[in-house]
């Protein structure tokens, strides 16, 4: 049976700031040694919560993307009728004079499989939305937005998409040091 639970606002505390925090992490699916999943016997909210740490193959680790303020947003739209599918879309911008962003821009082909971690601004530190799974991975596309001389600067705007069964929360460690 599915869980049917009370959802109460009376104990809601803290900020409900919109948008995302300004730092994401990502990696290519092929770089992972082990991609963990929620505990098989989990119930309730734990059924969509990953607490074990993802690990990497040799020389690989999570990479970091710092984004422009107010540019980051994760939306989750419903899939087709009667499916419960979650269509994840993460949009963010990085200045187009950033050389490393150009590398990602040139890799953004809508095919290569990635896992992204982002944090909504109203989420507890250390809790990440995991966008993409091993077999329902995320892909990324990019476009260059020109900006204007007396307005906004030039930007790369990236769009990460994934279609998942659940909104997955990752609370494992994010290791930025390459594995041996």
């Amino acid at each position: 049976m599915c869980d049917v639970v009370d959802i109460l606002l009376g104990d809601q505390c803290g900020s409900n700031q919109g948008g995302t925090k300004l730092k994401f992490h990502y990696a290519n699916v092929g770089d992972f040694l082990a991609l963990k999943k929620p505990a098989p016997n989990a119930t309730g909210a734990a059924k969509s919560l990953i607490t074990e740490d993802h690990t990497f193959k040799s020389q690989k680790a999570w990479k970091t993307i710092e984004i422009v303020k107010n540019s980051g947003g994760l939306t989750i739209a419903p899939g087709g009728e009667n499916s419960g599918t979650k269509v994840m879309t993460l949009v963010f911008r990085v200045p187009s004079n950033n050389v490393n962003a150009r590398i990602l821009f040139n890799q953004a082909n809508g095919i290569s499989p990635f896992i992204f971690l982002s944090e909504d601004a109203n989420m507890e530190d250390g809790s990440y939305d995991q966008i993409g799974t091993e077999k329902q991975y995320a892909t990324i596309l990019g476009q260059k937005v020109a900006g204007t001389n007396d307005g906004e600067g030039g930007m790369y705007e990236f769009t990460v998409t994934a279609t998942q069964n659940d909104r997955l929360i990752y609370e494992g460690a994010v290791t930025l040091t390459p594995a041996t």
Partner: peptide, 9 residues
């Protein structure tokens, strides 16, 4: 330096 993030730290 060998950074790792865990639980917001």
């Amino acid at each position: 330096t060998m950074p790792v993030h865990y639980a917001g730290e």
